[in-house]
């Protein structure tokens, strides 16, 4: 893990991404300390613009937008990381098993993976959520986890295939190590960067999709989350009546969290794939050319 952490710290995108995520996590954890308002109850007059009392104004029914924002961060983060973890675990396990075992097992898993990939995800989620009724964040996280692993499984399988024929795997097989041990302790550690990319990507996907499902009216009205904030604001026609704070607050929150996670994702991608890196080398090279110390 040492070198990975060191390369992350040296990568500017990773550092900015990590700071953004850390700030949001801190604010979410400290939410009750940062505001005295209950996010769910009516604490002011409807649709008040931002003021000293209500930093980000109030909603149509007089809830405090700031309080809903920082409490809602908890939901977005919990669903994002929970579903992201589930998606990654399923995708990684299926991908490694398919790639390593090969044969019939691979055929079956690959067939299902490809099938899940061509059934459009959001419409499928909409049907599932519609039958469940008003889906709580937990339910949303679970159905996301069970429907969205296919991309990760496909990528992990491809990567497993390339690791499988390496010498250290062959020697572990010769020594009679059981298959599950080879998969967990020999193959998995070599896929760590692809698993990392899959995890961060899945967290982004889960956060976006949770917000989308709730925005489309499939969430539980009692939930305090960024998606429900969007839904309520849109239902209250916040933009038409000029209550921009009501709708733009969750918008920017989602955007900033998404950007933070994406920066981290791109950074991990660059570290895993050295060809994509530009960074210091290139700027040193350019400087040397400019100062006439060499040419091409």
């Amino acid at each position: 893990m040492g070198p990975l952490v060191r390369s992350l710290i040296r990568n500017r995108k990773a550092v900015v991404g990590l700071i953004i995520i850390a700030l949001i996590v801190l604010i979410a954890l400290a939410a009750p300390l940062l505001t005295e308002y209950n996010p769910a109850s009516r604490v002011g007059r409807p649709h008040q613009p931002p003021s000293a009392d209500h930093w980000l104004g109030t909603t149509r029914i007089g809830q405090d937008v700031f309080s809903r924002l920082i409490h809602g961060a908890r939901t977005s983060l919990a669903v994002g990381f929970g579903a992201g973890l589930l998606i990654t675990v399923l995708g990684t396990a299926l991908g490694i098993i398919a790639g390593y075992r090969g044969g019939k097992t691979d055929e079956v898993i690959s067939f299902f993976t490809n099938m899940v990939l061509v059934v459009p995800n959001l419409p499928l989620l909409l049907v599932l959520a519609a039958f469940i009724g008003q889906a709580s964040p937990l339910v949303i996280a679970i159905i996301l986890g069970f429907t969205s692993w296919a991309w990760g499984a496909r990528v992990t399988r491809a990567e497993t295939l390339s690791v499988k024929h390496k010498d250290f795997i062959k020697s572990a097989e010769m020594m009679g190590e059981p298959r599950w041990r080879i998969m967990t302790f020999e193959i998995f550690p070599n896929l760590i960067s692809i698993v990392g990319i899959n995890f961060i990507g899945s967290v982004i996907f889960a956060i976006i999709t949770e917000a989308t499902l709730e925005f489309l009216g499939l969430g539980d009205p009692k939930t305090v989350s960024w998606g429900m904030m969007l839904y309520n604001a849109q239902k209250a026609s916040a933009l038409s009546v000029g209550a921009w704070w009501d709708i733009l607050t969750p918008c920017f929150a989602l955007a900033i969290l998404g950007i933070g996670l994406s920066l981290l994702n791109f950074a991990v991608d660059e570290i895993a794939n050295p060809r994509l890196r530009t960074g210091n080398r290139l700027s040193r090279w350019t400087a040397l050319i400019r100062s006439g110390e060499g040419r091409l």
Binding site: T286, L288, G294, R295, L296
Partner: peptide, 23 residues
Amino acid sequence: SRLHKPPALIRNGQILLEGRDVL
């Protein structure tokens, strides 16, 4: 043929083809 790309850098020297300076 001067096919190098960064990070390669020709620090010094000459390449002449029939007396013509390639660099």
